Amino acid sequence: MSEPSDDKHTTTNPDEMREQVERTRAELGETAQALADKADVKARAKDKGAEVKERTVEVAEQARQRTVEAAGHAKEKTAEVAEQAAAKAAELRTRAARAAHTVQDKVPDPVKDRAAQAADQVRDKAAQAGGVWQEKAPEPVRRQTAQGVRLARENRMLVLAVAGAAVVVWLVLRHRKG
């Protein structure tokens, strides 16, 4: 602030005194402004709020960037897993088709004829049961059944291979008993 007045430092020159007065006024003005800034709680709160807002925006942007990166990584992993699952499903379909052909090649013609007759009977009975089902089954149960049917249709070769193998096993067991 201002320096203490000593007889040694005082000047009698009017120009020097004016300079000293101007310096003292400037220092006093700065000191008064600093005190006013400290006393202005509203302005300080506003400044602090602006700082907090700025930091919040920065943190939110960083979080957004991390989220975008994580979503991209998850999308890549999901695509990778879906690709692997599709490859495995194709491999299983191929194996099931080979197994079905092997079973069909080994089954004698009379057994194939009986299986075709049984399949026709099953279709007829299934059509009858389907009519009754549509009339009496609750909606949630019908939805679940429709989903199961859709899956069976999508994996028809696998279902046919399993059904063919089951018929062969049944016929073999029946033949041994009789």
Results as ranks from 00 to 15, higher is better:
Ala87Ile: 08
Glu51His: 01
Ala90Tyr: 01
Pro110Val: 02
Ala97Met: 03
Arg95Phe: 02
Ala79Asp: 12
Ala70Cys: 02
Val59Arg: 06
Thr78Gln: 15
Val68Cys: 08
Gln84Met: 09
Val81Phe: 05
Thr94Asp: 13
Val111Tyr: 06
Gly49Trp: 02
Glu83Asn: 11
Leu92Tyr: 03
Thr67Arg: 12
His73Trp: 03
Lys75Glu: 15
Thr56Lys: 14
Asp47His: 13
Glu54Val: 03
Gln62Cys: 06
Lys77Glu: 15
Arg93Lys: 11
Ala74Ile: 04
Arg98Met: 03
Glu54Ser: 02
Arg64Lys: 09
Ala85Val: 08
Arg66Gln: 13
Ala86Lys: 11
Thr56Asp: 14
Thr78His: 13
Ala90Lys: 07
Gln104Asp: 15
His101Arg: 12
Ala82Lys: 15
Glu76Met: 06
Ala86Tyr: 01
Ala79Thr: 08
Thr56Trp: 11
Ala63Glu: 13
Ala63Val: 13
Lys48Glu: 12
Gly72Asn: 10
Ala85Leu: 08
Val103Gln: 07
Ala71Arg: 09
Val81Arg: 14
Glu69Leu: 02
Ala87Lys: 14
Gln104Ala: 14
Gly49Thr: 06
Thr94Glu: 11
Ala63Lys: 14
Ala86Ser: 10
Gly49Ser: 10
Val52Ile: 13
Glu54Phe: 03
Gly72Met: 03
Lys48Ala: 12
Glu61Gln: 10
Val107Arg: 12
His73Pro: 02
Ala50Arg: 08
Thr67Asn: 07
Leu92Ala: 09
Val81Ser: 05
Glu76Gly: 09
Thr78Ala: 15
Gln62Asp: 13
Gln62Lys: 14
Arg95Trp: 04
Ala60Asn: 11
Lys112Ser: 00
Ala70Trp: 00
Ala87Ser: 09
Pro108Arg: 03
Pro108Ala: 05
Thr102Phe: 00
Gln62Ala: 13
Ala85Ile: 05
Thr94Phe: 04
Ala90Trp: 00
Gln65Ala: 07
Lys88Ser: 12
Ala99Glu: 01
Thr67His: 12
His73Cys: 10
Glu83Ser: 12
Glu76Cys: 07
Glu76Ala: 13
Val111Arg: 05
Val68Ser: 13
Lys106Ser: 15
Val111Glu: 06
Glu54Lys: 06
Arg66Trp: 01
Ala97Leu: 07
Glu54Arg: 05
Ala60Arg: 09
Gly49Asn: 07
Asp47Lys: 14
Gln62Ile: 04
Val107Ser: 10
Gly49Pro: 05
Ala100Glu: 08
Lys53Asp: 15
Ala79Gln: 07
Glu54Gln: 06
Gln84Phe: 01
Asp47Cys: 06
Glu83Asp: 14
Pro108Thr: 02
Val59Tyr: 04
Ala97Cys: 04
Val81Leu: 13
Ala74Trp: 01
Lys88Gln: 10
Lys77Gly: 04
Val107Tyr: 09
Glu83Trp: 05
Glu69Gly: 00
Ala82Ile: 06
Val81Tyr: 04
Asp109Val: 09
Ala82Pro: 03
Ala71Met: 12
Gln62Met: 10
Gln84Pro: 00
Pro108Asn: 05
Lys53Thr: 13
Arg93Met: 08
Arg55Ile: 03
Val59Ala: 08
Glu69Phe: 00
Gln104Phe: 08
Thr67Asp: 09
Pro110Asn: 03
Arg55Trp: 01
Val111Ser: 10
Glu76Leu: 07
Lys77Phe: 03
Glu61Phe: 03
Glu76Gln: 12
Thr94Arg: 07
